[in-house]
Design a protein around this nucleic acid. Sequence first.
DNA 1: GAGATTGTTTAGCCTATACTAATCCTATAA
DNA 2: TTATAGGATTAGTATAGGCTAAACAATCTC
Lengths: 242, 242
Amino acid sequence: MNDPIASQHTSSSVEDYVKAIWELAGANAASTKEISKRLRLSGASVTNMLGRLKEMGLVNYERYHGASLTEEGCAQALRIVRRHRLIESFLLEQLGYSWGEVHEEAERLEHAVSDEFTERLAEFLGHPARDPHGDPIPRADGTLERDESFRLDEAAAGQLVRISRVNPENPSMLNYLGKHGLVPGQTLTVNEIRTVDGVVTIEDEDGKSYSLGRPLAASLFVQGVVEPTNTYPVEPTTTYPS
Amino acid sequence: MNDPIASQHTSSSVEDYVKAIWELAGANAASTKEISKRLRLSGASVTNMLGRLKEMGLVNYERYHGASLTEEGCAQALRIVRRHRLIESFLLEQLGYSWGEVHEEAERLEHAVSDEFTERLAEFLGHPARDPHGDPIPRADGTLERDESFRLDEAAAGQLVRISRVNPENPSMLNYLGKHGLVPGQTLTVNEIRTVDGVVTIEDEDGKSYSLGRPLAASLFVQGVVEPTNTYPVEPTTTYPS
DNA sequence: GAGATTGTTTAGCCTATACTAATCCTATAA
DNA sequence: TTATAGGATTAGTATAGGCTAAACAATCTC
């Protein structure tokens, strides 16, 4: 009577592993230790599951040498990440969740929703390209926007940058940054980078300046912005680009 | 490392049993057979789980005599039903699901969403009192609107009735009824009830008439409507009731 | 190159939840 | 009052996915 008919869903556990490997390593191999730390499981459990994932064709795995995603595993990871980021967008923008609350809920929901739901939600939200943290949302066809951003603490002093995304790992940081308007889209000038302790001093568009400790600075991902030196008048276009 | 901290969620299985018992029996006892049929599980599995549910204090259970919900079990069932019906409302009204698709998705989601999510969703939907099938949505405080409706095939010939809800069990019936506008809120006149084969003939507000076979007629729940004979002008009120 | 350190795997176990087959009750029908 | 049919339970088993403790491999240091 155990009837797996039409179950497009692998188990929640399997999905967690695949996603974790994707987040940890992308196309590279993730070690047992890394995975066990991230999922808060014992190493033994991870070893065990990696064997199973290999059987399923989701990872390449050789003992003592970590695991990397196969093509299929990677596709699966992107499906989960797409679900996750769309759900986060919905929770934040429509249901009024705060940045801190959102992650845990999305973490549970991402294993329960169908592809049907996901695509209808995407439609409902207007097919956003990025979630509220600024992370790109994988597309339904399994492609993912290339991300050119780098950590704020790797910027150069004097550089003009725009916040492209915020590491969603730590809710209290998220809330802090959100409160000060340090959210995706904001433009900042990097005033000083103290390599000794990692403190980064920045100035926002209103001229307010902040000193961010290393953990905060490492949570902010930015892209370089080229200050236009010569501005030519923009030719009027006949159509209105969105 | 198995850490059930702060888990307001009982397992999905437990929730399914509790909900099934509620739907089958309300305050009465449900038999092992009934439960096993509804959940599509073997009788042995059900017996086993009923023992466990009793340990948890969710049901009263004596072997060979079925199980009924305890107060706590009932409260839990109502929480799940509330989640289910709110989710169904959202899927139908906001995401554009059809009546047939909605049930399965809600069935999965109801086990994944938190109370936080549920209440925010209720707010988002404007705190509806009934779901799109016309079923009353249990309130956050655990109370449930009394339902005065009866099955269409138990109406009297000549009676004027209003559809109050539609049994959501059978998707294809739902779709059929929906296509013909036989949805909650519609007013009908019962023309004839053939007790021999259970066929009910009705007439809708536009004068169109339908013959419904027994299964369809038993899926439509209606309330009697009293045709106003004397209409008095309504006194104006000084406050605007919502 | 020999330890020492740290990460990985193996072995053995546990729980939740399902299953089948066999047995046991209960209620109904004669 | 008893036979019997059908529902309920028990016994034994399976699978997924965790765990700990102990053994093992790889790497880093001297």
